[in-house]
Amino acid sequence: MSWASWSDFFAMGGYGFYVWGSYLVALFCMIGEIVLVFNHRRTLHKQLSLIHKATQQEQNNETTS
């Protein structure tokens, strides 16, 4: 099944809009999901390291004072 040319491929027998519409949305959903998880992780890491630094600070103060 070789496509005559790239333009045929995108035209997809006249149904290009529907076929590529669904595949683009599929790609968007999947990438979006992964990006969401990564954002969630990054903010979490930031929070945790802040807490971590804060506890570190407290320990130093206790030991020094």
């Binding site: 099944m1 070789s2 496509w3 997809m12 027998g13 006249g14 149904y15 529907y18 076929v19 669904s22 595949y23 599929a26």
Partner: peptide
């Protein structure tokens, strides 16, 4: 690229793959 054109639905059926 491998699956043939469907004689009834021509290319639209390729949505089936997702």
């Amino acid at each position: 690229f491998v699956a043939p054109t469907d004689f009834q639905q021509s290319e639209a059926y390729r949505i089936i793959f997702i």
